[in-house]
Computed example of a mutant assay.
Amino acid sequence: MFPRRPHILASLALGTLLSAAGMAMAAPIAATVENGTTATACAEEDNVSLVLRGAGIRRMRIEALQPGYLGGIDKDVTAPDFSGCNFDGGAHPTDPAYKFKERRVVLHEDAQWRIVGMTLPTFWRPQQVPVRVGARTDRGFHLLQVFRKEDDKVLEAMVLYPADGYWRIKPLPEERFGDGVYGSSFLLGPVEQAGRPVVDIASIRIVPKPLSIHLRFTRGGSAVARVSEISRARTALDVRLSSPTTDARPFAVLRSMYVAADNADVSEVRWRESPEANEQALPLPEVKTLSGTQFRFGRSLPSKHNTSAPDIFFGGFDGAPAR
């Protein structure tokens, strides 16, 4: 082996120092969660708003995880329950109803993924966001669906709503539960109020290999959500932001439903104040403001609504620059 020259050794030493500095920059950052939940008797209404804020965050991880009780239940209750609602499955009575030409387009298909764009006959917002998948560009979709292929099955694992910025993710279901169900949804990006929390997306680009979703926001900045895992255990997104977050505007909001502990898509919050700290838990009605480096929004008690719906995890907050 050739001996290393002095300038190479110096470069390696400098690289070690820079790597150490980078590791220091990537130290975990705490975020806060504020509970904006309101009371409801309607199991089909998003009355839960858990607002995430924090300064200096450029990277995070979001996961959909199987609820801890899943192995102990025999039946997955998936039917909608409008018994406590003032609507019966159509559009919410307070929403606008913009009309569109209904369509469904397969935007990409390969051995692993099927990506579908859907336009609904009515939607509550008029935005028509351009979407690019590979070399194909289209616009006006209300849902972008990601299906994972497994053996002879095509299973939906993720939905993004371009016109209002909502995401829904779930792990691949246990076979006894068919296609499984979604529960909570979340917003990612510069959140604002427009009748309800929204994120205005200027454009979306999907890269199939490796699968990643690139968002450009109307209010400025961008994000990349890389799909790092879709399995029976979890669906995981590794998120990189183009610029660090600030306390002035939420960077994410979890939206969900809570009527009672046994009728909820999220009924408790588990969190760690630091990576070394013990996990803590509170029932959702007792949560006000929490600070932590990771949060799990979920259920310990089986729910009679969307029983198999996943818990949603936010963590891995750090300030490392996007790569």
Score class of each variant (00 low, 15 high):
Thr235Asn: 11
Ala26Trp: 05
Val207Glu: 13
Val269Glu: 00
Ala79Gln: 12
Val266Ala: 12
Ile312Gln: 12
Arg196Met: 11
Thr289Glu: 14
Ser291Tyr: 01
Val105Ala: 05
Arg205Met: 12
Ala277Ser: 12
Thr94Gln: 13
Ala277Gly: 01
Arg234Glu: 12
Phe317Lys: 03
Ile206Leu: 15
Glu34Gln: 14
Ile115Gly: 03
Arg232Val: 06
Pro321Arg: 12
Leu120Arg: 02
Gly316His: 01
Asp46Arg: 15
Ser274Val: 00
Glu286Leu: 06
Leu254Arg: 04
Ala223Asn: 02
Arg148Asn: 04
Glu192Ala: 12
Gly15Thr: 14
Asn278Glu: 14
Val253Asn: 05
Thr38Gly: 06
Leu282Pro: 00
Ala233Tyr: 02
Ser11Leu: 15
Ala320Asn: 01
Arg219His: 08
Arg219Asp: 13
Ala261Ile: 08
Thr245Asn: 09
Ile8Leu: 14
Glu276Asp: 10
Gly140Thr: 00
Lys288His: 15
Glu102Met: 06
Asp46Thr: 11
Ala135Gln: 11
Ala252Ile: 01
Arg323Phe: 03
Gln127Glu: 15
Val224Cys: 06
Ile29Ser: 01
Arg148Thr: 05
Thr37Met: 13
Ala194Phe: 03
Ile115Cys: 05
Leu237Pro: 04
Asp238Gln: 11
Cys42Arg: 07
Arg255Cys: 08
Glu229Asn: 09
Arg196Phe: 09
Asn35Ala: 08
Trp124Tyr: 09
Ile29His: 03
Phe217Cys: 04
Phe100Trp: 11
Lys99Gln: 14
Phe313Arg: 09
Leu17Val: 13
Arg148His: 11
Arg272Cys: 01
Glu279Pro: 06
Phe141Val: 03
Ala27Leu: 11
Cys42Leu: 08
Ser256Pro: 04
Ala252Tyr: 10
Glu273Arg: 12
Leu215His: 11
His142Met: 05
Gln127Lys: 10
Val154Ile: 09
Val253Gly: 03
Met25Arg: 14
Pro126Cys: 07
Pro96Thr: 01
Met25Ala: 14
Glu44Gly: 10
Gly117Ser: 01
Lys75Met: 01
Val227Phe: 05
Leu211Met: 06
Gly180Leu: 02
Ser243Met: 13
Leu18Glu: 06
Trp113Met: 11
Trp113Ala: 12
Gly90Thr: 11
Ala135Tyr: 02
